[in-house]
Design a binder for these strands. Structure first.
Lengths: 173, 173
DNA sequence: CAAAATTAGTTGCCTATGCAACCAAGGTCA
DNA sequence: TGACCTTGGTTGCATAGGCAACTAATTTTG
């Protein structure tokens, strides 16, 4: 096999003449990679320092923002599956970062809120996280920032519809 | 504090006067949610129809694009951990969608490539995926598309540096 | 009001995945 | 050449997370 044929990433040898899909330009892929990198970078801040994971972080932040709410509401606001919320809450409760007060009007649910310790942690973390996000955004041209916001919004909306749409083009599954 | 203080999801009751962080506007969160929705929507296309997951999809696409390469190269190109690649490859191999030819010049590695069946699957999937991405992008103003592209690139670059940067402001861990 | 349906939340189970240890093949250097 | 180091790739282990089944409480309906 001739020398020039191998590239360090790898060169196309038997692929279609023009690849139908370039992964590195493929939007879902790029979004995923970007999101993971950002997420991982951010996690390092709180995971090392406070020993919490993403779900716990989200619960903490949501409670910091709203003060008191049910697990269901937390899930709705933070886009998390109820089991994820349940486990994150259990975790935070065990560490006395949040407290629970059952709703006497509906004993199925309970109102959750930050304990003083939880609030302290939130007050410490939130500004750091905010700064992190600001620094990220700093790297983007001001004009592009708004576009990014709009785009993310549209993509988020659109992907829901498309799922069902394209997945079953003419096959009723 | 005036009326506008209330948000539709839940009402602040004990939170700080002005929440330090609004999760729904927090970039890492938005990226994650968006990426997950898009990813899930896309997965539906191939997971239901071809019974493959994201890692297998990426290996398939990468091989479809480059023709023949080592597992390491696949991982590098598709941003996947080597164990993920290894398992995805094993999976696809078991299903005779890709084949392996050991490199006689270096017996540690092996060249992987699509079998005819794999190529067939790729040729079928790639255009559908492309169309999916196009439809997603259609929802975005043409001008914003370039901005999105640039922004994702910057964010992807930036997040790497920031990780170490902010995580240890002045504490050598 | 009692049976059925719904809802908030938890848990069992199974898959996915990252890390670390490992294996086998190459490479380096005295 | 032979001890050590590096590298491609696989596997054991432990954790994370989704789904479905379950419990307990509430609501609906006949």
């Amino acid at each position: 096999m001739p020398v020039a044929m191998i590239d360090e990433t790898a060169e196309r040898t038997t692929g279609t003449p023009e690849p139908a899909l370039r992964l590195e330009d493929f939007l879902p892929y790029r979004l995923n990679v970007c999101s993971n990198l950002v997420s991982t970078a951010l996690s390092r801040i709180y995971s090392e320092r406070y020993r919490i994971g993403v779900p716990e972080w989200r619960v903490l932040v949501t409670l910091g923002q709203f003060g008191m709410m049910t697990a269901k509401a937390i899930g709705a606001h933070s886009c998390m599956h109820k089991t994820k919320v349940s486990r994150a809450v259990a975790q935070l409760e065990k560490r006395k970062l949040i407290g629970r007060r059952s709703n006497r009007a509906d004993m199925r649910e309970a109102f959750l809120s930050l304990t003083p310790a939880g609030r302290e942690m939130y007050d410490e973390l939130a500004p750091i996280a905010t700064r992190f996000a600001d620094r990220l955004l700093d790297s983007i041209d001001a004009a592009d920032r708004d576009a990014l916001h709009r785009a993310l919004k549209k993509l988020t909306e659109r992907s829901g519809e498309l799922a069902t749409d394209i997945a079953n083009p003419r096959r009723p599954r």
